[in-house]
Design a protein around this nucleic acid. Structure first.
Length: 705
RNA sequence: GCGCUCUUAGCUCAGUUGGUUAGAGCGUUCGCUUCACACGCGAAAGGUCAUAGGUUCGAAUCCUAUAGAGCGCACCA
């Protein structure tokens, strides 16, 4: 028995050494595996290279590594493809915060300089994160790693856009977008949050009508009142009737419009419209061919149309405008109990200002239709199953996807414009500048999800790479349940559009990792747990077990330090079991026939291993881990080892020989079974076992078929 | 408003297709310097499975309603 077993298990001493040996062996790359089985592929959700690893990363790395190691031991060509995401807007926000702290602003910087700075920042973080992923024990193939801003990836993504343009699936749209005045970019619908708020609802006299509004500051240019065509209260007013009204900055002439978008029950059933700053109003204006004008600028300040209020921020202007209207006797009521839903930027919480803007949109309906059909045909399975409903809901209710972002940190949109802002405006998608004079390049970049949506294709080398032929479609997409609508549908859509096949057959969705009380971790609450602190304190294997035991898919996990500590004890237990077995067996004769009692115990163990195998195959990882833990500690150690002491002290040579073989065999089998969950301690012990039959436990045979 | 999920021991959670006395970890109590391990061993206490109905030979598990929690969606200004 090696002397190291005389001391408690030391994760810190073991982990780096073992990982380096694995990596050097080349077996993370399936091309080097001794067996040439069927491929099994997982694309790693590329972490955002703008910070360090958090507990959620540790969870997904663990889950995916368990599946990969399990399949590798079963003889599959197991390929886990790591990558990193530039995470456009997210990273730019992180970097802008940094600039803010330094008293700088991106709006005073040359875009090229800004890009270069963010690039350097991201590359530094990327390297750091790769090391951290190694620390969690990820057996991914680093030789195939990609970054979303690798030149080849950029080109692929741009080609997709050009193809979609040619296929009529992207178009230049001039319409209402979600505008963040702080970050000065438009955002997709999934990049905004909806919060219920209480805001005063003002009732103003508007000529012969009373209108209700929560946004007086947008009302300067309003010259149309709209009501429902069936509203009997206003039956005497006909579409096109006009009237005089005293308004904020003097008298105006207004016109009556009838539209079914108006809710008769809300307010007075009459409203004025501001097409530039409200999506519903924009639609009404389009239907009735009404003019529209910008009232609020891109920074969230009032434009000259506001007269004396020009240049003011909307929240400052609002009370002053109401005050002025009150002096004119035009305020009839203020309802302070009005609750409504307001959209905010999901990063800075600033109110979204709807603005009309030219952007590139992806036509979602035909693409979503295909994704739906694939799911209906059973080509993609969701775990847990109920997420399929959520997926369907999203695919049935798609809005066209705005993919233009007014930020530098991203993949440039290969588009060109001519005669911009005039009736003769032309816009084309092309990798090269089109022929002819006057073309200017689009300065916008793609929404990050436009590139990450193509990730399974990109990682497998679509369309001509050799990996694409072998490993696409991939097998499992394991990611957070919050990505069910942000990421998963886009991957399925792009997979079907470009690759003609779904990119994976199974979507496994994990929950959030919360603090010990089940509260969401956040920097402001100060309850963020750094997974690397936990691995250095208790060992990576302990953290991995704490993250997966009893953690059902789709459900959030409360991660307490006590929990991790418990599994550190388990790693040590395993270590001492090995010590006992090694001490008492010496060179056991593995061919010794087992006595009846030992054969029965062995049957029990084999039945359990068969169950565990089935559990993992059916993605009940939480259950498999718990069963192994329970058997090893409370059966093998507490009962079988205790009973062995007496047997091995006895003078029954047949029973002794049988028991020695049984102990070695059982320890060996459970080290194999535990290896995907606790790779380090199991590998370290297994290297000292007489039953060792491969260079690494990592590539040894799974103990049950 | 609509949709999805959840409510099981002091805490965090399992309970895989309905089937004997409902489980785990941590915590608590009691007893152990047992020669693998005190990062340990042995034992114990602790639950009307949110509530009310229903289906069934049998329900934590299926159905309905109610209450509470969480998440998502929604153009009522």
């Amino acid at each position: 028995m090696p002397d190291k077993f005389l001391k408690p298990y030391n994760p810190a001493e073991t982990e780096t050494r073992v990982y380096e040996a694995w990596e050097a062996s080349g077996f993370f790359n399936p091309d080097n595996l001794p067996e040439n089985g069927e491929p099994f592929t997982i694309v790693m959700p590329p972490p955002n290279a703008n910070g360090s690893l958090h507990a959620g990363h540790a969870l997904f790395i663990t889950l995916e590594d368990i599946l990969i190691r399990f399949k590798r031991m079963q003889g599959y060509k197991a390929l886990w493809l790591p990558g990193a995401d530039h995470a456009g807007f997210e990273t730019q926000v992180v970097y802008e915060k940094k600039l803010e702290k330094e008293g700088r602003s991106r709006f005073q910087m040359d875009p090229k300089d800004l890009y270069d700075e963010i690039y350097a920042f991201t590359m530094l973080n990327k390297t750091g994160m790769e090391d951290q992923i190694r620390q969690i024990g990820a057996s991914c193939d680093w030789s195939r790693e990609k970054f979303t801003l690798d030149p080849a990836v950029v080109l692929d993504v741009q080609k997709t856009f050009v193809k979609m343009f040619a296929d009529g699936l992207v178009y230049r749209g001039n319409r209402t977008v979600n505008w963040c005045p702080k970050h000065q970019t438009s955002l997709s619908d999934v990049e905004t949050t909806n919060g219920e708020e209480t805001a005063p609802l003002y009732y103003f006299t508007y000529g012969p009508f009373t209108i209700a509004t929560a946004r007086p500051e947008t009302k300067f240019g309003d010259k149309y009142v709209v009501m429902h065509p069936d509203d009997e209260r206003y039956a005497k007013w006909k579409e096109g009737d006009s009237f005089e009204a005293e308004w904020i900055n003097g008298p105006i002439t207004a016109t009556v419009i009838k539209d079914e978008a108006i809710d008769k029950e809300f307010g007075t059933g009459v409203m004025t419209i501001t097409p530039w700053h409200d999506a519903t109003d924009f639609e009404i204006a389009k239907r009735h061919h009404l003019p529209y004008e910008q009232v609020i600028d891109w920074r969230g300040r009032l434009l000259p149309i506001a007269g004396e209020f020009a240049g003011m921020k909307i929240l400052d202007a609002r009370p002053k405008i109401v005050e002025k209207l009150a002096l004119k006797g035009l305020v009839s009521k203020i309802d302070d109990t009005y609750r409504h839903v307001a959209k905010r930027c999901y990063k800075c919480n600033t109110f979204i200002e709807p603005q009309v803007k030219d952007q590139w949109f992806v036509k979602m309906a035909p693409l979503a239709q295909k994704a739906m059909e694939a799911v209906n045909d059973g080509a993609v399975r969701f775990i847990p199953e109920n997420y399929e409903k959520i997926f369907r809901y999203w695919m049935e209710n798609t809005l066209d996807w705005n993919i233009s972002r007014q930020i530098v940190w991203g993949i440039p949109i290969p588009a060109w414009f001519r005669n911009r802002g005039t009736d003769a405006e032309e816009s084309v998608a092309s990798l090269e500048r089109p022929d002819g004079d006057g073309w200017e390049a689009d300065t916008d970049t793609f929404d990050t999800w436009f590139s990450s949506g193509q990730w399974p294709l990109i990682m497998t080398g679509f369309p001509e790479g050799k990996d694409y032929a072998t490993f696409y479609p991939t097998d499992v997409m394991e990611t957070g349940h919050d990505l069910i609508f942000k990421w998963v549908p886009r991957m399925i859509i792009f997979g079907l559009y470009l690759g003609k096949k779904v990119p994976f057959h199974t979507v496994y969705l994990h929950g959030l990792v919360n603090d010990a009380q089940g509260k969401k971790m956040s920097k402001s609450k100060g309850n963020v747990v750094n997974p690397l602190d936990l691995t250095s304190k208790y060992g990576t294997d302990a953290l991995r077990m704490a993250l997966v035991v009893g953690n059902t898919p789709g459900t959030d996990l409360a991660l307490s330090e006590e929990r991790v500590k418990g599994y550190k004890h388990f790693a040590n237990k395993l270590w001492n079991i090995a010590r006992f077995v090694l001490e008492h067996t010496g060179e056991a004769d593995m061919k010794t026939p087992l006595v009846a009692h030992d054969a029965a115990l062995r049957k029990e163990a084999e039945d359990l291993l068969a169950e565990v195998t089935k559990d993992i195959e059916e993605y009940r990882i939480y259950l498999a881990a718990e069963k192994l833990y329970h058997y090893v500690w409370h059966e093998f150690a507490d009962k079988i080892l205790e009973e062995s002491k007496e047997i091995l002290r006895s003078s029954d040579d047949e029973a002794k020989a049988s028991r020695r073989a049984f102990l070695v065999h059982t320890l060996d089998a459970f080290l194999r079974a535990l290896h995907p969950f606790m790779p380090f301690v199991t590998e370290e012990i297994w290297q000292s076992l007489q039953s060792k039959d491969a260079a690494f436990l990592m590539i040894a045979r799974w103990p049950s078929s």
